[in-house]
Write a protein that binds this DNA or RNA. Structure first.
Lengths: 343, 343
DNA sequence: CTGAAAGCGCTTACAG
DNA sequence: CTGAAAGCGCTTACAG
């Protein structure tokens, strides 16, 4: 590790008495598909060059290499907000996966704004990333199609975009919602409402569909109702929504997301609702601090490590084999019931 | 935004009938300190060149530029774990700050391992970052001194390292702890214990010092006691520690960190401790989901936005003016009391 | 006011 | 088995 007065190929070549090219060959001696080295350098020379490189702790200049080979081995990851626990955990898994495959990742947060997303992509492309992982915000559909078709490989995760022919890694959001509803049903709940977002994000819409479907199957859909908060004014909105719910004829609340649950449960506590007693709660995702919540509840948990590794592997494959067939990977959620404190 | 068949300076030069150099001048027309442009290009030519560039939506190749100017306008940020809410929030603020100043940031997580930290730094330096922001883990002191002296500008944040002459942005950890203790004291608590980590991280040690100091000042130090959990086995350890506390003669618990508080409070709930009634709770930091915790408690909150902007500005200054005097910025925490549900 | 030239550090097709 | 040469796309000191 040394930045100042870094040693170059040239320096090594001079000391070894060979050309720069030979040094490059010796150091990168790529083994081809047929098991033979691409370039033949005598073993003796190769050894000598490697020793010199090691002696000076030679580190190739990645910028120069990237400029030459027109690949940077880096990807961009576009998220709604990296400070959101769901996405920061995803980011961590991506970071690890990328490192293990000698890639690096840039992150950018959009705050659900298509304009910010466009800026971020432009910025990333300028930097020379080889591919893009995106959890798209609504309104970014056209942009995404354009980018995927003309600019750079794209893999979608978490949220789907219609008519966008790219690789995708998605959760089975409908299944998760159905699992949650069935779990509440299993507790004897029959009058289950859902608190969700307005907007047209595919994951949210699928969760709503799953909620309705399970309710219908269980014949409790006459009591189904979906309350929707505006994404941007979430916290305030949710409080207001919760107050509109008549808890005298409501058994359970199913929250479409973690942050809805935080605001919503908070309001329920303020209202003095008998949580997990008279009124059951289920939610998508659960932050670590949910463990502080001293009532039983059910959550739909997404396997973020798998999510991240699948997504990452897909973008790398797309970069290396642009013509490979498109994949759409649907990951199954898990149901976690915590009734820790009711023991 | 276009990657494939990107247009180059050369192309523009040809169409404009001038040299590449002139195009570069026209597009970058730097205004110098004396208010004059560094290179004189006739206005007419400059206009023409700019129009052509705009027409083709020319984007300079950043790799090529970086290679030439030996600066990448990127920094590395080394954190214990980006999936930890404290650090992911910090990351988000860094991201925004960097973008607003046309920098980009790489992130790496160390899991408190000095070996991983070294790898990450090596990796970043290879990538050509101009500077490094580090929340150092214990055991990384020598490495950090070496890097700061011989390799690349470094700014420390969150945790201090002795005998390391670099810019630093730190919280007044002792003050925060004192505020917490005084707050508990104000509630009438006199027998306050602290739950902390073993190890030698400066921020933790300062919090312990603050706890002891405030206790002494308030003459309640005869009841002071610091329980210490092993960092790596935290969750299990904390449960065991909590069970060792005799809550018959303990008024309050002060947790040194958010994650200690989560595990610790969880255990207290299991034990049936009358939280915020008989036993008060205070903690450093608070995740969003702390809002779900339906008891009053006090937390020491760090102004992460200021933390991030100060840190970022410092590293940029150091990059641009390597000889500037070293700064050590101490940021004050804020005390937040939540007794929302006790209203 | 403008341009030719050198060079950042690497890789690779080509020639021997 | 090895090397000279070209070139990735840019910037900048220098010369006119």
């Amino acid at each position: 590790m040394s930045k100042k007065s870094a040693i170059t190929l040239q320096d090594i070549a001079k000391e070894a008495g060979v050309s720069r090219a030979l040094v490059s060959f010796a150091l990168n001696n790529a083994v081809q598909a047929d098991g033979r080295k691409k370039y033949n350098v005598s073993e003796e020379t190769e050894e000598r060059i490697k020793e010199i490189a090691a002696k000076y702790n030679y580190r190739p200049n990645i910028l120069a290499r990237s400029l030459r080979v027109k690949r940077t081995s880096s990807i961009g990851v576009i998220l709604p907000d990296i400070s959101n626990p769901f996405f920061s955990t995803f980011a961590r898994f991506i970071e690890d996966r990328a490192a293990s495959r000698s890639y690096s990742a840039f992150f950018a947060s959009t705050d659900e704004s298509a304009a910010r997303m466009e800026k971020a992509i432009e910025n990333f492309v300028d930097k020379g990333i080889d591919g893009l992982i995106v959890a798209p915000c609504s309104g970014s559909e056209d942009l995404l199609r354009k980018v995927a078709n003309n600019v750079i490989p794209v893999v979608l995760f978490d949220r789907d975009v219609e008519d966008c022919n790219v690789d995708k890694v998605l959760l089975d959001n409908s299944m998760g919602a159905q699992m949650a509803v069935r779990s509440l049903y299993g507790e004897g709940r029959r009058r289950i409402v859902m608190v969700s977002y307005s907007g047209r994000l595919s994951n949210i819409m699928d969760r709503e569909a799953g909620y309705l479907r399970a309710s219908a199957k269980l014949h409790i859909d006459e009591n189904s109702y979906i309350y929707r908060a505006d994404y941007n004014t979430c916290a305030d909105d949710v409080g207001e929504i919760m107050r509109r719910i008549d808890f005298n004829c409501t058994d359970a609340v199913f929250f479409a997301t973690n942050s809805l649950a935080v605001s919503g449960i908070r309001e329920m506590l303020k209202m003095g609702v008998d949580i997990s007693g008279k009124v059951g709660v289920a939610t998508y995702d659960r932050g670590d601090s949910f463990d502080l919540f001293p009532y039983g509840f059910t959550s739909v948990v997404q396997p973020l490590d798998e999510f991240a590794s699948r997504t990452f592997d897909l973008i790398v494959r797309r970069i290396e084999e642009p013509q490979a067939a498109m994949s759409k990977i649907i990951v199954s959620p898990e149901l976690v019931k915590s009734d820790y404190y009711n023991d």
